[in-house]
Nucleic acid binder design. Structure first.
Lengths: 218, 218
DNA sequence: AAATATTTTTAGATTAACCTAAAAATATCG
DNA sequence: CGATATTTTTAGGTTAATCTAAAAATATTT
């Protein structure tokens, strides 16, 4: 039975592995968990003993297949709870993360699978991130950053990169919601800001925002 | 912010206070939490510092008003989650306790209150125990043990005293469910076992079982 | 490639939540 | 009521998860 801290480290390693072929660095994990490097080193040794990761001194951490499955199960729970909070309990997508961080640690296979069934086997969480199925399989959809589109191209808003509360509220205010259709109308030369067509209206967003918005080309 | 252990101690003190006018004893708490007396002594000092209980050496623990409200909030969450598990996720009443023990520690006022709303503001959990409302108010119903009824008296099954999984499964097997109408037909002299009329059928149960079944007289 | 900078690990402390063994206080019983 | 039993506390130890400071290894830069 894993502790909350062990689970959080695994999850962190999983997320940091995505854009990283080699081992995940001690410092990166420490930063993502808001702890210090020595604490992470201790934990890496423990996770290695439990065969959840492979770890050699100074070489960073890599998930084993067992560790990967374990991490995916935690992420599955996190995202299912997020769906529950938004669809059944009137939470906004900007306020689910903190609560899901707690709920993801509840241990009960039956709970997870019944929740999945109750929600109708959702494949995406409220931020557009894919939900691993019971076997740990993730259905990725090809998506690009809004900032990668050229003038005249159109995309459908399918997810956010940084799902911080502040950014999600920013999107709410501008009525940019998952599923919105976005067309690049113009790119400002001097600050790279984008003029976009959003469903029926037009607006302007910064390059920083465009770097946080995932779309599928249409 | 209270730790899980602090919350569990509070809950234990609350439950043990029910049939106890004086302070709750260290040993009783230790037994209910499956820890040892010295661990409880440590925790009582801490809870006293936090003004959740009053505690004098050798005198046992008494909840303050603040401690009582805090304990009731944990119990409220526990019982709401039990309702959720049974009504929405197909759990049996004999398997909800363990999971609710975890879920009761999730910290989010909004979650608790939205869950309450989602469930239609239930007043009883699946074992017939009352659910405190948001203000910590509990609506007690007058109930007696089945073993307190005399021959010829009738009662409606409204709750269990010991809600151990084994006892709940025993009730399931005999189709004794919350809401069942029970009539005392005969009491066996030599072992105090009861012959009862249950809805349309008759059966015999031990005095030990009758001591675990709450009914309202009808 | 040597010097410097950065990262990571080791060493040793701290805190929370538990424990055992023994001492102290309270309760019970003849 | 005094002896004995029980309960509770104290004293001191353990483990998990954190920390700081310093040492060691790796990476970068000139």
């Amino acid at each position: 039975m894993l502790s909350f801290s062990e689970e959080n480290h695994l999850k962190s390693i999983f997320h940091l592995s995505i854009d990283q072929k080699n081992g995940v660095s001690t410092n990166a994990i420490a930063e993502s968990l808001k702890t210090k490097a020595p604490s992470v080193t201790d934990m890496l040794k423990k996770l290695c003993d439990k065969e959840l990761i492979t770890y050699k001194k100074y070489q960073g951490a890599l998930l084993t297949e067992y560790g990967r499955k374990t991490a995916l199960n935690i992420i599955r729970k996190h995202r299912l709870w997020e769906v529950f909070l938004v669809e059944k309990l009137n939470f906004n997508w900007s306020e689910v993360h903190e609560v899901a961080e707690q709920l993801e640690h509840i241990k009960s296979q039956k709970l997870t699978n019944e929740l999945d069934k109750f929600l109708g086997y959702p494949t995406k969480d409220p931020h557009g991130d894919p939900i691993p199925n019971i076997a740990g399989f993730i259905k990725y959809t090809t998506k690009v950053l809004l900032s990668d589109l050229s003038i005249g191209e159109k995309g459908k808003f399918v997810g956010v990169k940084d799902s911080s509360s502040a950014f999600l509220k920013f999107l709410d205010k501008r009525k940019i919601a998952l599923g919105s259709n976005i067309e690049i109308l113009h790119i400002e030369d001097f600050d790279d800001s984008l003029h976009i067509g959003l469903d029926e209206t037009n607006l302007s967003i910064s390059i920083k925002s465009a770097n946080n918005i995932y779309v599928t080309k249409i």
